[in-house]
Design a protein around this nucleic acid. Sequence first.
DNA 1: AATTGGTTCTGAACCGTTACGGTCCTTTCA
DNA 2: TGAAAGGACCGTAACGGTTCAGAACCAATT
Lengths: 363, 363
Amino acid sequence: MHVRRPATLASLAAELGVSRTTVSNAYNRPDQLSPELRRRVLDTARRLGYPGPDPVARSLRTRKAGAVGLLLTENLSYAFRDPAAIGFLEGLALACEDAGTGLLLVPANPEREDVASVHRAGVDGFVVYSVPDDDPHLAAVLERPVPTVVCDQPDLGTVDRVGIDDRGAMYELAQHLISLGHRRIGVVCMRLARDRNDGFVTPDRQHAAHFHVQRNRLSGLAEAFSEAGVDWSQVPVVERFDHNPSSGASGAAQVLDRDPQVTALICTSDVLALGAMTEAARRGLRVPHDLTVTGFDGIRGAEEAGLTTVRQPVLEKGRAAGKLLLDANERSRPRSVNLATELMIGNTSGPPRGGAEERWFGP
Amino acid sequence: MHVRRPATLASLAAELGVSRTTVSNAYNRPDQLSPELRRRVLDTARRLGYPGPDPVARSLRTRKAGAVGLLLTENLSYAFRDPAAIGFLEGLALACEDAGTGLLLVPANPEREDVASVHRAGVDGFVVYSVPDDDPHLAAVLERPVPTVVCDQPDLGTVDRVGIDDRGAMYELAQHLISLGHRRIGVVCMRLARDRNDGFVTPDRQHAAHFHVQRNRLSGLAEAFSEAGVDWSQVPVVERFDHNPSSGASGAAQVLDRDPQVTALICTSDVLALGAMTEAARRGLRVPHDLTVTGFDGIRGAEEAGLTTVRQPVLEKGRAAGKLLLDANERSRPRSVNLATELMIGNTSGPPRGGAEERWFGP
DNA sequence: AATTGGTTCTGAACCGTTACGGTCCTTTCA
DNA sequence: TGAAAGGACCGTAACGGTTCAGAACCAATT
């Protein structure tokens, strides 16, 4: 008894006394051979334990992998913890499903600069979701000769892009707060770069932020409040590397410790905002009476909490990214899609306590 | 100006006047050639726009795809909506990440019997998660000559398996309810087979259920309550095809309409149980005073709601599946891993209203 | 009898790479 | 000074398919 090498298309053809072409056709083009022969091929295949054409070899020849790659900056598992990321994934998965395409989650450990995983990925295209714009994995993706769609990234001009108007949406949210009378505010934002910096953020760091989304949200805030006469450089902005409610809570605490007089706490994500709410409650601050809290994203938890936030269509974003990628028919000019957002005014925003600002600056 | 064919390792070698082996070594085994030559190779590669060795060709030659496939029965996007599935995915993603392996989500539309996606997947192994045991996609996976791990599936004896003791865990939960005095109960369960059957379930259908997990949970219940003297064939068991809270609500409604006297509603998942709670509230039934409700899984929402349930380590399940697969070193005998569960007694279970049962059957 | 057309099947080229087993040329050391 | 060791590089043979231009055959038409 010897170890039999697994059957291949060639060995099957030899066994049958037909050409490899015929065996190939039996699987891929049934109309190209007589039904009897086809049956004989398939029967023999079963008898020999031939599992059908090898997918990798087929991919090599046809130049199609039947899968798209997804690059996330975070540890791969992070994606399954962030509600917005999950929504994006769901949308992308839907688009892939429609096209019968697989979705390959590419491991991109942000710690190591190991880009091999990008090189090793057998895919027909990439979707890059919210990575820092100086991420080496992103650079590696852009070098691969396959279509790419970036999402929540700056428009590179060379590849398709889908996103929202983070800056404009945050500007609008700020306007809402300004109209309520808020002038003394604090901000809690997500990480701005690849290095950990849990603490206050200088204006320089804000401008130089490598995460497009955060940079633009902050810039929308800065613009609106500057126009309203607020000296943005004096506004406490706190950054948190990890993205979860307890980061939001500790960030809020840091802002409130620095300036207990802030009337509004603006968070650049709902997850952070929900944490900030917890911290407010811990301090006995009633929202919105004593403190206004706002978020961004429009996740389910935010809705349940009645959070004032900006709703963005995360699922649609994923689906749009997938569609753009899978329908990269011809070398048309790179497309750029902006999806609509919606300001959701909940019950966590209201006029500052006692309307102090209005009294001081009113007519 | 002509369309230049993309550079390959061979064309690069020709350009440089070295062998293909050398170019290959420049990328894969830097120690096999002099630093100067390597630099020259890499520089020329950049100049010619050669993106590095083609991953598919490499996979063909090395017989490694660098990815594992995940097969789910549901529409691919379903995975991102079910908390337990998300937990599993996260665990699996963690294991893959550790190994530097990609995770390919294989589209397996349960509508079509189209198994091509399984054949097309270039992977080094498969994880199969909670599909009906007669699913053609599962059969297709088993035909592929790669290691496979099934999760929440019956032990096939031929491939590795990871899961929990669904039957035992549900038996234990039932014991808890029995000890509280419940004898008149109703059940809401998830789909039992590939066909849609939103309604009452015959004992036959319970036995023949194609979803291993549901079959065993029901069987654990049946065993415990039968031992307690309950005629299981009279217990209303309602099935729901879709898995979401509103299915739980409508399922609960159907049970309560049939028998308003039930004192406990046992749901085979937390998601269903949370829906059942909503329905109870809608009917003005206080939980647990008027009605006991239990779930299964131990998702976050259940914890927050104080649901009596069985906690199972979903993340660990995913991680274990990944480890088993990635460490499929030698042809050892197929392994079978059972993870521990924990009965979580919350505040949704209590003695039947007025202790009626006890009074009727007491000493 | 020659032409046409349609099936059915074949042969050879090709996809882009890596594994394997060399060869050749310098050093090193006794 | 010769043998052994080691570094640097190369040629060939897969890896397992798909594709495309025909060849062979047969029936029907001209």
